[in-house]
Structures are given as structure tokens and as C-alpha cells.
């Protein structure tokens, strides 16, 4: 079970959180997109082997959304950061994908 650092509450068990897929995908202007691009926004998210910045919500705690670097292979947890703040550098440190 992952041990997730909520920026507001500190380290808590994974069961207190819900997952929200890739972070940093802004809601686009729906009318500026082709059908195909809109469908991509709806259904396609990055799912790499390795480090990924993800959205999580501490639903059973403070109820706040935040972002978190996590390695999808090793399940290592990287830095957490608040929405609309600068994204910390990937912990991959240029080694993206090699961990697998």
C-alpha cells in the first residue's frame, strides 16, 4: 500500500486517496478542438513505464487535490505539489524509462 505525502496532512495510507490520472492536463477550450482532439482530451492520458506526475485527491482526509510524482514501475513516490504551482523536476533525473 502506497504511503502518500498529502501536502496538507502529511504521510497517509493509499486507502485515503483517490487517483486522478496524469497531472497537468488543462481543460481545453472545447469549441477550439476537432472531434478527434476533443476525444483525445476525454480519453487519452499518459501512462508511461517509469516516473509520472499524477493527480491525487485526499478524499478521506482534507478533501484537497494535489499532484505527485510516482514511479509506475517501482512505485517509488516523488515530490508532491499543489495545483497551479510550478512542477518540481522529475525524479527520473534524465533516466526516464530506464528503471523498468
Amino acid at each position: 500500500m502506497l504511503y502518500i505525502p498529502c501536502p496538507h496532512c502529511g504521510l497517509r495510507n493509499e486507502t485515503e486517496f483517490h487517483y486522478g490520472a496524469e497531472a497537468g492536463v488543462a481543460y481545453p477550450d472545447p469549441n477550439a478542438l476537432t472531434d478527434s482532439d476533443w476525444a483525445k482530451y476525454l480519453h487519452i492520458r499518459a501512462n508511461p513505464k517509469g516516473w509520472l506526475a499524477e493527480r491525487w485527491v485526499h478524499f478521506a482526509g482534507c478533501g484537497r487535490w494535489f499532484n505527485l510524482w510516482r514511479n509506475t514501475v517501482t512505485h517509488e513516490i516523488g515530490p508532491a505539489y499543489l495545483p497551479f504551482t510550478e512542477q518540481p523536476k522529475s525524479p527520473a533525473n534524465g533516466q526516464e524509462g530506464l528503471k523498468a
Partner: peptide
């Protein structure tokens, strides 16, 4: 509701 308010 919270998701939209907080993240968008």
C-alpha cells in the same frame, strides 16, 4: 464539484 473548483 470539488474537483472542478480545485483543479480547473
Amino acid at each position: 464539484l470539488e474537483e472542478w473548483l480545485q483543479t480547473e
